[in-house]
Design a protein around this nucleic acid. Structure first.
Lengths: 141, 141
DNA sequence: AAATATTGTAAGGCATGCCTAACACTTTGT
DNA sequence: ACAAAGTGTTAGGCATGCCTTACAATATTT
């Protein structure tokens, strides 16, 4: 078996997602920052970063800022999109607050099927479009 | 730390759910049956059953049929209800086929918050009630 | 009742993913 | 430039949850 991943473990997905969020916000990120952000020891982060380097998803040298490779960005976008679809659905359709929606999205994003996500995304868009009308139905007795 | 659980690991929830399904269908279930059903070795099932016995969720003696305690039934019902809410939502609202809905429910049921499940359940009921009308919106351009 | 099949368990392993402690290296502040 | 603070790595551990192999105990078949 080669070291390059076809699939990322749920843990590694969390790492790459956090790296991506820093990336799109132009926030320089080191291992120790990641450890603080994810509430994980520096040692564990160090291991995880080595794996991501081995999979060629990030570039990283000790004491420098972590950066994503092209593949890394693609992978991260996928993970982030999943997160967003779930969070948006929870907030928009189920009226869940932002924190709870985010926490649940974080966990579910790693295991839900792409097909369901696609349908969920469509449904949220549909719901937004017709929200007013649909919600009048809720007031009926 | 005492051996009795406040929370069940996702694995143990799967075991107890399978045991519950046999229970409500009056199907006698032994460890080896469970192993076949869950595609897990007899050795691993044996370990898991010991844990469930320790937590007083099942009664079990070698070579006999597994049965649930009162607490076990309560726990199982909770897990099973979660499963059902998710599956029903996927099928009814997102129009996912039974297999895919079930597989995803199996994984998500262990991690989603009760609050979201409650809202999801309400939403599914609401959707069923107004399905016809809501779906006419989908045909609009 | 004996042979065969099934079931259960124990021992030892493996992978994942986290931890702490200790140490090494780098950066920063004075 | 040097001390202090911050960062990274290694080693050794632990827990979970699965595996295979080998054996023990029970059930079933003939």
């Amino acid at each position: 078996m080669c070291a390059n991943a076809q699939t990322l473990s749920s843990g590694l997905e969390d790492y790459i997602e956090a790296i991506y969020i820093a990336h799109i916000n132009n926030i320089p990120l080191k291992g120790a920052d990641l450890a603080r952000k994810l509430n994980i020891s520096r040692a564990s982060v160090s291991e995880a970063l080595s794996k991501l380097v081995a999979k060629e998803l990030i570039k990283y040298n000790s004491y420098e800022t972590i950066s994503l490779t092209k593949t890394g960005i693609e992978e991260a976008k996928k993970v982030y999109a999943k997160h967003h679809i779930l969070k948006d659905f929870f907030e928009t359709v189920l009226d869940i607050n932002s924190d709870e929606a985010g926490e649940n999205a974080c966990k579910i994003e790693h295991i839900i099927s792409q097909n369901i996500l696609d349908k969920m995304s469509n449904f949220t868009e549909f719901y937004k479009k017709h929200k007013k009308r649909i919600e009048t139905f809720k007031k009926e007795i």
